[in-house]
Design a protein around this nucleic acid. Structure first.
Length: 213
DNA sequence: CTCCCGATAT
DNA sequence: ATATCAGGAG
């Protein structure tokens, strides 16, 4: 139940953000699909800035799934400690690498469904990898996208899967990968969770959830 | 719904 | 000192 008017409005929001923030690339540093996969797993409940600090050293030490498999879990836990949830993440990465090595010849699968089956990889992580490593249209719903989508009236639910569906319905496929980045960028820079800077918001006029006058 | 956990803003 | 931030699995 998506009217043309709503689609128009959503596209307008996209265009304004696109104008302000320009070409978007992931805030996570990576140089190949495997690195993006690992970085995105680490980014769960952790800022991208922190993940980048950790991966700078991490990717010098671990180049491929086998490198991770050669290492004791305890050592890996130390290497990723500051990203939080380090036991879970170390376990996920190990299990992930096991599968990549055995079933995918050490490569990262390039389709969404296969990605989702990997340990520690949910729809958000799978969308990030599919979109940014392989150019497959996908909408990654992280906490920023969730918050801004609701604030902007692009979605009315806390359920990430439904937000993803709503954004895909509202916006043309060519904008899918970018809209996640744009909403996240705007969420980090201006429409911050703790203290939204509505004064400096370029989409203020489109925002029913504005906090300041 | 609960557990997993450190970093940072206030 | 503590509230808030940031996803996935069971």
């Amino acid at each position: 139940m998506t009217s043309e008017k709503e689609k128009k409005r959503a596209l307008r929001i996209y265009e304004i953000l696109r104008e302000k923030y320009g070409e978007q690339k992931p805030a996570l540093n990576f140089s190949n699909p495997f690195e993006l996969l690992i970085a995105t797993i680490l980014s769960a409940q952790c800022t991208d800035a922190r993940v980048n600090v950790v991966t700078e050293k991490l990717f010098k030490k671990y180049k491929n799934p086998k490198d991770f498999l050669k290492t004791e879990t305890e050592e890996l836990e130390k290497d990723i400690f500051s990203t939080g949830f380090y036991r879970q993440k170390a376990k996920s990465i190990k299990a992930c690498c096991e599968i990549l090595a055995k079933e995918y010849d050490g490569k990262v699968p390039s389709n969404f469904e296969e990605l989702t089956k990997l340990p520690g990889v949910g729809r958000k992580t799978a969308s990030v990898v599919a979109g940014n490593a392989f150019g497959i249209p996908a909408v990654a719903v992280d906490t920023h996208v969730r918050r801004l989508s609701n604030l902007l009236g692009l979605a009315d639910t806390k359920n990430p899967d439904k937000i993803e569906a709503a954004l895909k319905e509202l916006l043309p496929e060519r904008t899918w990968i970018e809209i996640s980045h744009l909403l996240a960028s705007h969420g980090r820079a201006v429409c911050k969770a703790r203290k939204p800077d509505c004064f400096n918001c370029v989409i203020y006029d489109y925002c029913p959830g504005k906090k300041l006058k």
